[in-house]
Write a protein that binds this DNA or RNA. Structure first.
Lengths: 208, 208
DNA sequence: CCAAAAGTGTTTGCTCTACACCCATGG
DNA sequence: CCATGGGTGTAGAGCAAACACTTTTGG
């Protein structure tokens, strides 16, 4: 009866080499998402941070609960329940053994993981469409071109520069800093997240 | 360490007496949401149906996983983890001991339950705004006026009849039947859910 | 024929979309 | 002064919002 095992797993996305990456660990039956057992003395979110082996402080990572899977996805492991978290970070994760794989080209995965990652990706795309969450994958200060690239990589389509800028600024989630970044060409203004902002943009309601 | 207890709880909404009702059970420390332990040999959704004491078949109820709460909401019960489901049904639930309360006027609740119900309510409202889920609270065949009333009760605001009808039909989730319902006034055409329809309406995307 | 509820279109304003050129800097 | 990426505005189309009268039935 109580042979239940409750684990917390994390789908950690990062941006590297112009691609969206997922962090995976090797296991006997394929690659797997980092996990930790849920513990009575901590919150599920804390367990999620443990799954990443304590490499991330709470404010270095965006964490959001995704879904809890039970028997429907692990029919071969009765009693295994997984609370999945979805995470974004601008940092380079360096867990021992772990590797990052492009979300487009995943290696062979453990049972059920394909579905979990696919769902996390759908949620990420959906999130970008109605929020400004993309900056969670970028350093504290970033240019609008960088942010637009992030959106293009994740959504897999080109966006119009002027429309992108207008809307992302209208959403009020990011603000400009006084600083600029020089490189080739005209220096770009740097922006940062406004911690006081509501991260979600109102979408058009079906019934006003 | 493994003194973890995994329970599934259900926030069951129904429509009665022109109000949105929540099903609750009495407990020593206040009213509580119906719950069942998660079991290794069943899915979480099956456990959710058990929480309702087997009174509902899977197709008599709309069930959706809401959130999994751990230590953050039950600090006084370390190790208690609750997977919450959110449910809609047109039926009159008749669990022994249980009572239904208007979502506006909840009785004193057990610890953490207030937050859970508030979240379920937010999700329900949000769902109605971008989907046609309201019919899940109505009998198989219903009139557009009934459906509009449902929306008005849940959203707590009057809606425009013509705009409501245009959009709900445009969404393509319900279809008319050949039948009509007579009462006072002109008989109303009956509608039903289209099982082949995609239940979610596309909303305007932030980045097209 | 009266009461009660069902059903139906149009105009106006706003928001989204598509689109091309000038600007600032470094080398 | 040239190459490189940064930055900016507008006109047209499509969608949403507001709004009032006619139709059908039962009593």
């Amino acid at each position: 009866m109580n042979d239940l095992r409750l684990e917390v797993r994390v789908v950690l996305f990062t941006l590297q080499a112009e691609a969206l990456q997922v962090l995976l660990l090797p296991d006997s039956s394929g690659w797997k998402l980092p996990e930790a057992p849920a513990r009575a003395e901590e919150t599920l979110e804390e367990s999620a941070l443990h799954a990443l082996q304590g490499k991330f402080a709470r404010d270095e990572i965006y964490l959001e609960q995704l879904y809890t899977y039970g028997g429907e996805i692990f029919p071969d492991q009765p009693g295994l329940v997984n609370v999945i978290y979805f995470a974004l970070t601008p940092l380079r994760p360096s867990l021992p053994q772990a590797r990052e794989f492009s979300a487009q080209h995943l290696p062979p995965l453990c049972a059920g993981h394909e579905e979990i990652i696919a769902y996390a990706l759908r949620r990420l795309r959906y999130k970008l469409e109605y929020s400004a969450a993309g900056f969670e994958l970028l350093p504290e200060e970033f240019t609008l071109t960088q942010l637009q690239h992030t959106y293009e990589i994740i959504l897999g389509e080109k966006l119009d520069k002027r429309n992108f800028r207008r809307r992302i600024l209208q959403a009020g989630v990011i603000e400009e800093t006084a600083r600029r970044r020089s490189g080739e060409g005209r220096p770009a203004r740097l922006y940062r997240y406004r911690p006081d902002a509501v991260a979600e943009v109102k979408t058009r309601r079906l019934f006003p």
